[in-house]
Amino acid sequence: MPGGLLPGPHRPARRRGRRQPLRVRTTVSDALYTELLQLALQAAGRAGELLRDGRPADLAVAATKSSPIDVVTEMDLAAEKLITDLIADRRPADGILGEEGASSEGTSGIRWVIDPLDGTVNYLYGLPTWAVSVAAEQDGEPVVAVVTAPMRDETFHAVRGRGAWATGVWAGERKLACRPAPPLDQALVSTGFNYVADVRAHQAAVAQRLIPLVRDIRRGGSAAVDLCDVAAGRLDGFYERGPDRPGSGRRDRWPGKRRRDRWPPRRATLGRT
């Protein structure tokens, strides 16, 4: 060879336009998730502003659901309509499932799951702990979620593969992290109660058994806010336990006979790093 150089290893010429499926899929997913997140933030933010600034002084119950104390107000309905109208305008091929009855089948593989006002009783009474929840599923798997708590001026959001974050005037923008799980007797836990009297009685018995075992129990009135507070390290855990309704396929049936409770409660979120 000229100059005494040995030929190097054979390297096949790179073909232009060579497909890289994994990278392409990842890029497409990232772009889609960013689009869904921005829409969820906008929808939840607008609904939160409507609920905060538009609450009538004479707000009353518009309807009830599972029991006379499981209430819906005109503002629940207005907030859900605002969210669903915005989503339908921006992404008309997506499906929708709303707490207050909004439902539509989609063709895109994306479905939005919406609770326009979590903590309606608090809102009805003028208490500040309530939230708007907007999430997006892709082929049945959650990929984006937003919870905004307007009276705390705080918004939580999570995207699959990117972690969970909070923004607000209280502590700025930060990545969420649970507290290290403490011994049970040092745990501050939160819970919620059902609106059906028989289930509430069962839950009260569970709370009676639990309270001597933990630091204390909180009952804020919005499970969405409670779960975000667990994620932010403000609570050590959240649980809600009640007999299952008929048709669930489990042996714990509601409101008939039940087997002896298992401990700890099945439905629980415990803080962990």
Rank of each mutant, 00 (worst) to 15 (best):
M1K: 06
H10D: 15
A13C: 11
R14C: 08
R14I: 12
T27H: 14
E35W: 07
E35T: 15
L36F: 08
Q42K: 13
A43Q: 08
A47W: 02
G48M: 03
E49C: 06
D53R: 10
R55T: 00
A57F: 01
A60N: 08
T64A: 11
S67P: 03
S67D: 00
P68H: 00
V72T: 00
T73Q: 04
A78R: 12
D85I: 08
L86W: 01
I87S: 03
A93D: 15
L97F: 05
G98D: 10
E99H: 07
E100I: 04
E100N: 05
S103G: 09
E105P: 03
R111P: 06
W112I: 01
W112V: 01
N122K: 03
Y123L: 02
Y125D: 00
P128V: 01
T129C: 05
V143Q: 10
V147G: 04
V147D: 01
R152I: 04
E154W: 07
F156Q: 00
H157M: 04
V169Y: 08
K175A: 14
A177I: 08
A177C: 11
P180G: 06
P180H: 08
A181N: 14
Q186S: 15
T191G: 05
F193N: 10
Y195A: 14
R200L: 06
H202T: 11
Q203D: 04
A204G: 02
A207W: 03
R209C: 07
I211S: 09
L213R: 15
R215K: 13
R219P: 03
S222F: 06
S222L: 01
A223Y: 06
D229M: 12
A232I: 12
G233P: 07
R234A: 08
F238E: 11
F238Q: 01
R241I: 11
S248G: 02
G249W: 03
R250M: 08
R250H: 11
R253I: 03
W254Y: 15
K257G: 06
R258L: 10
D261C: 11
R262F: 09
R267H: 15
L270R: 12
R272F: 12
R272V: 14
